[in-house]
Simulated scan of single mutants.
Amino acid sequence: MKLIEVDEARIKTVIDTYFHWKELDAEIKTLSGTRGINLPSELSEYMACYALKLKLNKAPSEGDAVDESDPKNKLIIEIKGCSAESGTAPNSFSPSEKFDDLVFVRLVKKDDKLKIYRTGINSEKLKKIKVNKTQTVGDQQKEKRRPRFSIQKKIIDKLKLKPDVVFYIREKRIECK
């Protein structure tokens, strides 16, 4: 793993890049009338790591981040995000996902804030989630497919989760719940 601390200099660059992305997204919507472009995972991952005090994993290995708050039990974290207005756009998972906790990042674009959820779902629990009437995430992973489902609907809403942290991007302010 190649772990990086998201320090003040990095988060400033990420926030600046977020506002560039937001302008580009608005311009693309006017050109094409489409839903725009998704928030890049690089931005949501950096912001989630900053807000949750996680180390970002830049190596092509398991997980997007590591929680080192307990030195004896470092947790592999998978971060998924959604920037759709409804928050219910589908997320996809690799056929070989392995992680200890799924973090979901939901952008509320009009307020420039991220709602960040530590779901308590690991890669084994994820396999049991239904993605359609007949299959689970695990079933599709066995078929070497990339399962897709709405984390908002299937986990956040179903478990009635509240955000652990809200990150106000413009002010660089973290509000813990």
Rank of each mutant, 00 (worst) to 15 (best):
D70Q: 10
K113D: 03
S96M: 08
T136G: 04
P147Q: 12
S150L: 00
E78K: 14
S86V: 03
V66E: 11
P95G: 05
A89C: 08
D70E: 09
K58Q: 12
L56N: 05
Q140N: 03
I37G: 12
I76H: 03
E85Y: 14
Q140E: 14
I155N: 00
K125S: 15
K125E: 15
K110W: 15
T136H: 07
S150R: 03
L107F: 02
S94K: 14
P60E: 05
Q152E: 07
E45D: 06
K72A: 09
T119C: 08
K128G: 09
E85D: 08
I79L: 14
Y46T: 04
K130C: 15
P60K: 06
D70W: 03
S41M: 12
K128S: 12
I151F: 10
P90D: 13
L107R: 00
I76W: 09
P40G: 08
E62Y: 13
S69P: 01
I121W: 05
K154I: 03
E85N: 07
L107E: 01
N38Q: 15
K125F: 12
Q152G: 10
L107M: 12
A59E: 06
D100H: 13
D70V: 04
Y117K: 03
G33T: 04
I77T: 04
V66K: 15
E124Y: 13
K115I: 00
L39E: 02
K144I: 05
S86Y: 07
I76M: 09
K154W: 04
G120P: 07
N38C: 14
P71L: 06
D100K: 04
S32Q: 14
S96L: 10
F99H: 07
C82S: 10
S150I: 00
Y46I: 11
N57T: 02
K130Y: 11
L126Y: 02
T136N: 11
S94W: 13
K115V: 01
F99T: 02
R145S: 06
L102I: 08
G138K: 08
G138V: 06
S69N: 10
D111G: 07
S150W: 02
E85A: 09
E62L: 06
E68I: 13
P147R: 15
K58T: 11
N122M: 12
G33A: 02
S41Y: 11
T88C: 12
R35S: 11
L39S: 00
D70R: 12
V137G: 13
T134D: 07
I129L: 09
P95T: 09
Y117H: 04
K128V: 06
K74F: 08
G33P: 05
P71I: 10
I116Q: 05
K144H: 07
S96W: 07
K127M: 05
